[in-house]
Simulated assay, not measured.
Amino acid sequence: MIEIHNIHKSFGGKKVLDGVSGVFETGKTNLLLGASGTGKSVLLKCIVGLIKPDIGSVTFDGTYYTNNKLDIRQEIRRKIGMLFQGSALFDSMNVEENVEFPLKMLTNMSKSERMDRVNFCLSRVGLENANHKMPSEISGGMKKRVGIARAIAPNCTYLFCDEPNSGLDPQTAITIDELIKEITEEYNITTIIVTHDMNSVIEIGDKIMFLYKGKKLWEGNNVEIMDTDIKELNDFIFANRLMRDAKKVEDERAEEEDRVEEERKGETR
């Protein structure tokens, strides 16, 4: 579990985060949702420790991370896996070497132990025979899978994903969403995903925090988000016609259920 407490951050006098607090639960896919420029990525960087908040603190399973001793912060960092927006694979390394990289940097594993772990992680993301392919030889979806394999290779406790579906076709995006959710549940990881993709919200939104102009405006799950009275959230969710039509159908279904229930009550009186 990761907790954030009253996070504030400004750049050049412009406030980007304004008192954001919340809890990200273990074994669930926790989504940071919002339009571009709302502070999602800055909040993620504050949590990871890439940016120091002006005010506020972050705790990982009860251990304070912000402003703690260097050795404690480093110990927590060893438990963090990152999936970057552009996958961020090393172009000069093949798939196997990319996944092995954090094991060489963060563990004392022997070469054979590293290879066993690399092969296990590649198998887990469905890339059993891709070890010697170069990043230039694989698709965008495969690059994301390699990125996930690399992130979980050191047995991470916390997984951070920055726009994992960026640049992917809808079908591949759903596959990546499902893979992240499966790994989160299987290994009981605390996963935080930055996204503005409503498909991800609907598919894997166990817990969602909606940011608007640097503030936490709402939080809940992928069922509750479809029925709120917060204008800014509804404007974001139902910005496209497909979502508006889906909302209309859902409202009509709910009205019909209410009507039938009222008729049933009337008959029993």
Rank of each mutant, 00 (worst) to 15 (best):
P170D: 09
G167Q: 04
V42M: 10
I237E: 01
G205D: 02
M82C: 00
G62N: 08
G62A: 10
V118P: 01
N131L: 15
P164A: 08
V20I: 15
L179Q: 06
E250C: 05
K79E: 06
T157G: 10
E219L: 03
L122K: 07
G167E: 04
H8T: 10
I4W: 01
L179H: 01
S136C: 09
I7N: 02
I208Y: 06
G19I: 01
G22H: 01
G167P: 02
S123E: 14
N222T: 02
D235C: 12
K79A: 03
N199S: 15
G19Y: 03
D229Y: 06
L103Q: 02
K28D: 09
A130Q: 11
A254E: 15
M109G: 03
T107Y: 00
E113Q: 15
G147Y: 04
E255R: 14
E224I: 02
E178A: 12
K216H: 01
H196S: 12
Y187Q: 07
V125A: 05
Y65I: 04
Y64F: 13
F160Q: 00
K248C: 06
N155E: 13
K181D: 09
N234C: 07
A246D: 08
V249D: 14
L33P: 00
I230V: 15
I183P: 00
I76Y: 03
P154I: 00
F238P: 12
G27I: 04
H8P: 07
E25L: 08
I202Q: 05
D18S: 13
D206I: 08
I51E: 15
